[in-house]
Design a protein around this nucleic acid. Structure first.
Length: 526
DNA sequence: ATTGTCTGCCCC
DNA sequence: ATTCTGC
DNA sequence: GCAGAATGGGCAGACAAT
């Protein structure tokens, strides 16, 4: 099929917000595809080129794209029109270009595509390269489309995705084999499952009530999620996004080999960096271990990891996702020594939970996970079976600049540069685009434009007058901001019309809060 | 050999 | 990662 | 209540430029 038809579909999908309508459009389109182009088309529509677990990446971002788009190009009339297969194949070639000269090669391949595309196709190509189609169709809607097109239940389609992690493959199976084909999909060792995710909860009482008055509470660690597949001597470690990270984490492999009794299992846990005092290190330090390729042995010593397992998805030939939480935990316990398990408390007593949360925080962890005792795993969706409770702090900060938004935020100043006062003037410690409603964005845009001091193409700098209350989870060392600090997960919780900039928090206060974090965490000096 | 730029379905 | 919005 | 969009900081790696 021609790529122009796919581009046209994307335009139509972006033209409606109605999900039923999108589902119908997707289903109709899927029926018209040739069997061999189904996987590529599916991936392209959701703005990707490869399935999640595939390590290939385009390595083309907006800088490269801008050079290609701005570079003089002519449309060559003798070219054949682009097909879906041709586009996908070329994108694969772009990803596969590595080594000296590869950037130039990537650019010229991309230019070849762009020069053969009409304006509508260029728009879609650009979005695919950025990995974001922004047409209201992502994985979830695509699953609906696949279900509709193959007359299969959405549950079965979702399950197949959970097990394969490959949307294109799921579509192929569904359209060729229907429910029968989907039913034959089963768990495979060394094919990572999409992990289950938690919903945010704002306090313990609410979480407890949501789960019927009694639940399991586990420490929530400030680390990285890992999924471990082990069959006999073969052990592989996968990240939350299904990337194989085994080579970076030889110490994790050793722990599994040496201390886990289960020899045919898929386990889930959290890897946390620990310091000399046995307390957790900041997340920043964990990240120095995670995607490392060079000097791995050296860093294994300098930044050791600690594992906290909390789930088993498969054991000795059995997929366990339909087993209740408690049954899975018992199986986990059976093969995993106690010190490698997440700290856990089962109770219905809110006061007891408060104490447990306090302990988690005083041991340097992030908060608590709250899990339904009879909950099944529903990997791949953010279900309400798992809740997370993380306390936050706030600072009152001054907006010193704002960036123009894009997409549905076009026309609004929607990303605010937040600063704290110091002897050297206002110093930025982060940005945020979260917490305001559409109405408030409108108000803020007008307010800030009235305070404009100077502007660039993307940013309006303003006189420091608007104070906002900003919630955050952590203060990090910043290599980017001159202030030396940055907020993690900053979001506006209140517009402080009652406060003047002089009343806002100072950089001195920020430093104080930063240092206080090490009351419960270790510090590393390399 | 060193430094700078760009990228990541990165990790959170 | 968090937040808001349309369905 | 789900699914999607809009964007955050910081890390190592890979290649390009000097």
């Amino acid at each position: 099929m021609l790529f122009s038809e796919l581009a046209e579909l994307c335009g139509a999908l972006g033209g409606t917000t109605k999900r039923k309508e999108k589902t119908r459009m997707l289903a109709g389109f899927l029926h018209r595809l040739e069997p061999e182009e189904i996987p590529s088309a599916i991936l392209l529509i959701v703005g990707s080129v490869f399935p999640e677990f595939d390590p290939r990446a385009l390595e083309v971002g907006w800088r490269t794209m801008r050079r290609v788009l701005e570079g003089g190009r002519q449309t060559t009339l003798i070219d054949e029109p682009l097909t879906i297969t041709r586009v996908h194949r070329t994108l694969e070639e772009i990803a596969e270009a590595t080594g000296p000269g590869s950037r130039r090669r990537k650019e010229s391949l991309l230019e070849g595509l762009i020069s053969r595309a009409d304006p509508g196709e260029v728009e879609v190509l650009v979005r695919i390269v950025f990995g974001e189609m922004r047409i209201g169709v992502s994985e979830g809607m695509m699953l609906e489309g696949i279900a509709e097109a193959s007359a299969s239940s959405i549950k079965l389609v979702r399950r197949a995705l959970m097990l394969t992690g490959d949307l294109g493959e799921v579509a192929r199976i569904a359209l060729e084999g229907g429910e029968e084909g989907l039913g034959r999909v089963s768990v495979r060792m060394f094919v990572p499952l999409k992990p289950m995710m938690a919903t945010m909860s704002y306090n313990i009482a609410e979480a407890l009530e949501e789960h019927g008055g009694r639940a399991a509470f586990e420490y929530k660690f400030d680390g990285a999620r890992i999924q471990i597949h082990r069959r006999d001597d073969r052990i592989r470690v996968y990240s939350r996004r299904l990337t194989d990270v085994t080579e970076s984490l030889p110490d994790v492999v050793d722990v599994v080999r040496g201390r886990i009794a289960s020899e045919d299992a898929i386990l889930e846990g959290e890897a946390v960096a620990v310091g000399g005092g046995g307390r957790p290190l900041p997340f920043q330090d964990l990240m120095r271990r995670f995607t490392r390729v060079h000097d791995i042995a050296d860093m294994v010593e300098k930044i050791p990891l600690r594992l906290h397992f909390f789930d088993v998805l498969y054991l000795d030939g059995r997929l366990l996702v339909d087993e209740p939480y408690e049954a899975r935990w018992r199986l986990l316990e059976g093969g995993c020594p106690e010190d490698l398990l997440a700290e856990r408390l089962i109770t219905g007593d809110a006061a007891e939970v408060e104490g447990f949360l306090k302990r988690a925080l005083e041991e340097g962890h992030e908060g608590l996970m709250v899990k339904r005792l009879d909950g099944r795993d529903i990997p791949g969706v953010r279900g309400k079976g798992w809740l997370k409770v993380k306390p936050t702090e706030t600072l009152d900060l001054v907006i010193v600049a704002a960036d123009w938004g894009s997409g549905r935020r076009r026309g609004w100043l929607s990303n605010y540069h937040l600063a704290a006062g110091s002897e050297a003037g206002y110093m930025v410690i982060g940005k945020t685009f979260k917490g305001l409603t559409d109405e408030e964005f409108g108000w803020m845009t007008r307010r800030l434009q009235g305070l404009k001091a100077r502007e660039t193409e993307t940013t309006v700098h303003v006189r420091p007058e608007v104070v906002v209350e900003v919630a955050f989870n952590e203060i990090q060392r910043s290599p980017r901001y001159r202030s030396g600090f940055a907020l993690r997960f900053a979001r506006v919780t209140r517009i402080r019309e009652d406060k003047e900039p002089e009343d806002a928090d100072t950089l001195g206060r920020v430093k104080e809060l930063y240092d206080k974090q090490f009351q419960f965490k270790d510090r590393i000096i390399l």
